[in-house]
Design a binder for these strands. Sequence first.
RNA 1: GGGUGCUUAGCUCAGCGGUAGAGCGUCGCCCUUACAAGGCGGUGGUCGUAGGUUCGAUCCCUACAGCACCCA
Length: 936
Amino acid sequence: MEKSFEPAQIESTWYARWEASGVFKPSGQGEPYCILLPPPNVTGTLHMGHAFQQTVMDMLVRYQHMRGMNTLWQVGTDHAGIATQKIVENQLAVEEKTRHDLGRDAFVERVWKWKEESGSTITNQMRRIGAAADWSRERFTMDEGLSAAVRKVFIDWYRAGLIYRGNRLVNWDPALGTAVSDLEVNNVERDGHMWSIRYPVADSNESLVVATTRPETMLGDVAVAVHPEDERYAHLVGKTLKLPLSDREIPVIADDYVDKDFGTGCVKITPAHDFNDYAIGQRHKLPPITIFTLDAKVNDNAPAKYRGLDRYDARKQVLADLEALGLLVETKPHKLQVPVSQRSDAVIEPMLTDQWFVDLTSDKGRKEITEPALDAVRSGEIRFVPENWANTYTQWLDNIQDWCISRQLWWGHRIPAWYDEAGNIFVGEDEADARANATSEPVGALRQDDDVLDTWFSSALWPFSTLGWPLDGPVKDAHGNVVADWQHDKIFLPSAVLVTGFDIIFFWVARMVMATKYFTGRIPFREVYINAIVRDAEGQKMSKSKGNTLDPLDLIDGIALEPLVAKSTRSLLIPQVRAKVEKRIRKDYPDGIPAIGTDALRFTFAALASYSRTINFDIKRAEGYKAFCNKLWNAARFVLMNVSSPLPTGEGSKPATEAERWILTRLSQTLAEVEQHFVSYRFDHLAQALYEFVWNEYCDWFLELAKPALNGDDTEAAASTRHTLLVVLEAVLRALHPVIPFITEEIYQDVAPRLGLVEINVYARPYPRPADFASDAAASAEIEWFKAVLSGIRKIRSEMNIAPGKVIPLLLADGDAADRTRATKFAAQIAFLARVETPRWIETGADEPATAAAVVGSLRVLIPLAGLIDLGAEKARLAKEITRIEVEIKKCEGKLGNANFVANAPAEVVAQERQRITDWNTQLAALREQAGKLST
RNA sequence: GGGUGCUUAGCUCAGCGGUAGAGCGUCGCCCUUACAAGGCGGUGGUCGUAGGUUCGAUCCCUACAGCACCCA
C-alpha cells in the first residue's frame, strides 16, 4: 500500500469496474428495495445539492444491498422543456437564426442531437460521486416508453373529464413566450414607485384617487373598487368614472378585498393582468380587457397612441400624459414584490390564454386526484422524514389550484389533441385514434395542438413509467436492450424512499403521489426523506452572482486559484458582479481548493446530514474527514504489515486478550447504533459513531494495545490479536462502505485474501450485524481501568514536562484486590505504552518518596518526583484537581440534601447520584492523602 | 399578512428533562519504526433575553429580540 491515502488513484478505476461487472443491477434475490432518483435536468451539471442527495441515496442503496435486499436505484434525466429549448435557441442565435427559421421538426431534431452529444454530463458526474445506480435502466422523460405513458395518462384523464382546456389567467413569460408554473416564478423585492392617479367621476366635480405600482395597466381597467364599509366612498359606489387616457367609462364597485387603510382605499381593477383583480372581475361579472400582446407590448384594445409600445415605455408615456392632464397626484418610492420568471429573469405578465389544465379543485377532481394524495400522507401510508414536512405537503394540497400543464414550446411531449375547423377537440394516441374516439363528426381537417406538456407532467409518472407502465411486457431501448418490464418490475412499486429537497415537495412529491395513486392504485414511495439545502459556510444561499458556489467536482479533484476564478466568472456578464465574485474567491480560496476526494466529500455530507433544514458546507470540515480517510488507510497499512500472509484457518480465531474482547464488544455496540441511525436517517450520528469507533477506539487504543501483544512472548495472544485486527478492520470496511465506497473497496482487496474471503467486492459482502461479534462487559471494564491508568500517567508526564521518550519509574499504592490483578495483567502494556519501568507496589504504611499522583478509584498511580518533577507544580496540580472534585461533590450533596429531590426523582437517578458521590469521595480521599504526603 | 425553522466553544454543527459534546481552529510538548493529513496533554461555553412549569431546564411552556426560509 502507498504510504498515504491518495484519493485520485483509488477512485480512478473502481467505478468503471463496478459498472461493467453489473453489480448495481437488481440481484433478483431478497425483498425489493427501490429508490427513484428525482431525475435531474438533462441540461444540468452536478451541484452540491445533487451531490448531497445522491450521497444519501447511495448510502441507502449500498446498505440495503449489503443487507440482502433486491435493490434498484432507478436513474435518468428529465427533458427540461424550457431549459433545453433555450440552449439550442441560443446556439441558433449565434448563427443569427431562430427556431422558426428551422421549423418545428428540424428544431426538435436538433435538440435531440444536442441531447445525444451533451446530455450525459450530469450522469457522468453522478458516477464520480460513486452512485450505485443501474445505468442499464437509465431513462429519459422523452423516451418512447415514457412518452407512451404521458399520452396514456393525458388521454385517460381527458376522457375521465379530469383534464380540460380553458381560457384562464396564467403566469406568462413574455421573453420565452410560454406559460410557466407558479413554482417557476420568484417574487423579488424591487424598488419601484407608488403613483396616485385621479379618476374623475362622470357628470360630477368629484373624483377618486387610486394608488398603483403599474399605471400602464389602467388602459385595461374595468372598475375601481372600494371597501363596502368605507364611508368616504359609500356615496360613489354604483357611480361611473371617466377612465383617463381612454374614452371609456368604468363603474365604482364595492368589494371587501380592498384594504381601507392601504393607500387611498381605492383600487383600480385590471382583471386581464392581475390575479386578484381577475377574481374581483369574476365576482362582479366584469369582462376583462387584455391590453398586452404576448410579448408584452400594448395591443389594439388600448388607445391608438400607446399601441405597439413595450409595457415599460407605455408606463412612461402614461405617466407623462397624466402629468400633463394634472391627474398625477403623487409619486413616491415604494418597495414592491415583482414576479420574475426563474427561467428567463423576465418580469411575468399575467395573461389570459387558452391552456390545458388538470382538474384538482372541482368535486370530481378533488375526489379522484387531490384527496387520495392527501389521504396517503394523512393516514401515514406515506411518511415524511423529518415528519413536520407533512404539514407543508398537506397545506399546499389543501390550497391547490388546477394544474396548468400546457407550455408554448416545441421541445416536449406534444399534446395529443386535435382541433377541427369548428374548434372542436379530439383527443387520442394519434389522429386516427382521436377520430375513432370522436363523439361528434369532425368539421373539415384536423390540426394537432401546437403546445407541449409541462416537463413535470412526465416527471410525475416517473415512479411507474420507468418500470415499464403502460406496456405489459418488456420495454426496449434503441439498441434492443430491455430497460424495463412492468410484469416483473412492478415489485419495485412502491419504492422505499424518495430523497429530495423541500423545494421540490410541490413539483415532485405531490404530483407523483397523485398520478401514481390514480393510475396504479399504489403509493409511489413509503417514505419521503427531505434533505437539507446546502449553503455556504456562512449560511448564505449558494449563487453564482455571489461567488459562493462550490462545484462538487472541484472539491473532489481540487482546483488551482486561477482556473477557479476563470470558471466562476465566465458566465457573469455584469463587470461589477464579476469583480465582486473574483475578489471573494481570491479571499476565500487564496490557494485554490485542495483535492479531498469523493470519499471525504461523501463522509462530510453524511456528517452534516442532521434533521436541520439547511447545512452550511464548511470546507474545513471536509478536510478533516479526508484526514479520517487517511487514518483508516494507515490503520489498514499497520494491520496488513503485521498480518503479511493469509491466516491459517482457525488460528487465533478465539480472542485471547481483554483488548480483543473489548474492541469486539465496542464494534458490536457501534454496529447496533449504526443500524438505528440508518432506520432514522440520522447519517450525522451514523458517521460520527463510525468515526469515533475507528479513530478513538480501534486506532487510538486497540492498535496501540496490539503492539505489545504482537511483539510479546505470548504466541497465542499474538496470533489471536492478528486475527482480531484483521476481522475488525474487515468489519469496519463493510460498515463504512456505504459512506466511503472507494477507499473501503481498495483496502478490502488486500484484506480479503488474508481472511480467505471469496467475495471479490466489499459490496458483495453482508453488512456487519451487532450479533456477529461477541460482547463481553467484563473485558470492557478491564480496558476502561487500563485507559484510566494510562491517561493518568500521560497527564502527569505532559503537565510535568517529562520528555516523551524518557522511561521513568512507576509506583502503585492503595487500591483493592482488583487493582492488583489488573496491574499484573496489564503490566507489559502499561510499561510499553506509558514508557515506565515495571510498576512496584508500595505496601500500606511503608515510607513513600515524594511523587506525583493520578488517582483511579482508590488506587494511587505514582511517579517519583526526584529529578523529574517540580514539587510546587505538583502541589498546585493536586490542589486544582481536589477543588474540581469538591465542586462536583457539592453539586451531588446539594441534590441529595434536597428532600424533594430524593422524594420525587426516579429511584435510579437518586441511586446514580449516591454512587457518584461515593466515587468522588473515594477519589478525593486518595488525592488528599497524596497532598498530605507531599506537604510533610 | 399567514406559516415553518433557527439562535449551544473562535468557526461549522450534534445534544433536547437528570455530571455540556464533535470536527476544525487555538496553546504546550513530541518528526516514538501505521499515520505530522500524525501522537500525547491542555485552553475554551452563565447553551439569544426575560418570565413560568418542575425536586431539577440547554432541553418543556409563554413573551420578547435577532436571523433564515416558504406561502400570499
